[in-house]
Amino acid sequence: MQTVSSAFDAAYWQGRYATAGRDTWSVGRITPPLQAYLDQLGVGPQPRILIPGAGRGYEAEYLHQRGFRHVMVADFAPEPLAELADRVPGFPPENLWQADFFQLAPTEPFDLLIEQTFFCALPPALRPAYAQQCAALLRPGGKLAGLLFDTPFAGATEPPFGGSREEYRAYFEPYFAFIHFDTAYNSLPARAGRELFICLQKL
C-alpha cells in the first residue's frame, strides 16, 4: 500500500505547524465554498464524515458546532490535532486520528470525505493513490467534496503543489461520477479563480 513520502513525514509537518509563517495555507476558519456546501447537509441520520489531512480542523469544528457527531479527523502531525482538541473541548477525542491517510482501514466506510488543502500537500506522484484510497474509504454512493488548486505552482519543491483540472480528472474518473467539477464561485479573494470545487460520487 502507498504511504506518504518520507520527505514530508510527520516530523516535517509538525515543524511546519510549529513554525510561525509556515502554515500560510491556513486561513484560520472554514473557507466559504466548504461552509456553503456543509450548510446543505442534514444532520439526521448522522453521516460518517472523514476529513483527511485536516490540519487545524476548522471544517471539523464547524461540523461539530452544527451537531454532527460522527466526524473523524486524520492528520500526520500531532500539533494540529492537539490544537483542535483544545479549541473544541467537546470534540470526541477518539475521533482525532494521528495517522497516515494511506494506511487508514476503518471497519465502517464513510458517507463523505472532505478535501481542504490535503491533496495539494501530497507529493504529486501520490495523487493516483489518493483517488484510489478515497474511493476505498467511501461506501458505494458516498461523496468526496472539497477544493483543489486549479493553478500551477511553478518550481514548487515542497507543499503546496498545484495542477490543473484536466490532470485531476484522470485520477478520479476510474472511481467516481462527477456531480460538480468547476471553478469555485465563492472563493476567498486571494484564491478567486484559482480553486476548483469538486463533488464526486463513488461509483
Rank of each mutant, 00 (worst) to 15 (best):
M1F: 05
M1R: 14
Q2L: 13
V4D: 00
V4W: 01
V4Y: 04
S6H: 06
A7G: 08
A7V: 13
A7R: 15
A10C: 05
A18H: 02
T19S: 13
G21N: 14
G21H: 13
T24G: 09
W25H: 07
I30W: 03
I30K: 04
T31G: 10
L34N: 10
Q35G: 08
G42E: 13
V43F: 01
Q46L: 13
R48C: 14
I49C: 04
L50Y: 12
L50W: 10
I51S: 03
I51C: 08
P52E: 15
G55K: 06
R56C: 05
R56G: 00
G57H: 11
E59S: 08
A60Y: 13
E61W: 07
L63S: 10
L63W: 05
Q65A: 15
R69P: 04
R69N: 07
D75M: 11
F76L: 15
E79I: 06
P80R: 04
P80E: 04
L81H: 07
A82P: 12
A82R: 15
L84V: 02
L84F: 10
A85N: 05
D86I: 00
P92A: 05
F101C: 01
F102Y: 11
F102N: 09
F102Q: 10
L104R: 14
A105W: 05
A105Y: 08
I114M: 05
I114L: 15
E115K: 11
L122A: 02
P123I: 02
L126P: 07
R127C: 07
Q132R: 14
C134P: 06
A135I: 02
A136M: 00
A136G: 13
L137F: 08
P140E: 02
P140A: 10
G142S: 07
L144C: 12
L144F: 13
G146W: 10
L147W: 02
L147C: 09
T151P: 00
P152Y: 10
A154K: 11
T157D: 05
E158S: 09
E158P: 01
P159M: 11
E166P: 01
E167M: 13
Y168Q: 04
R169A: 15
R169E: 13
E173Y: 00
P174W: 03
H180C: 07
F181S: 09
D182H: 14
T183G: 01
T183N: 06
N186V: 00
S187V: 03
S187Q: 10
P189A: 14
R191M: 09
E195F: 08
I198F: 12
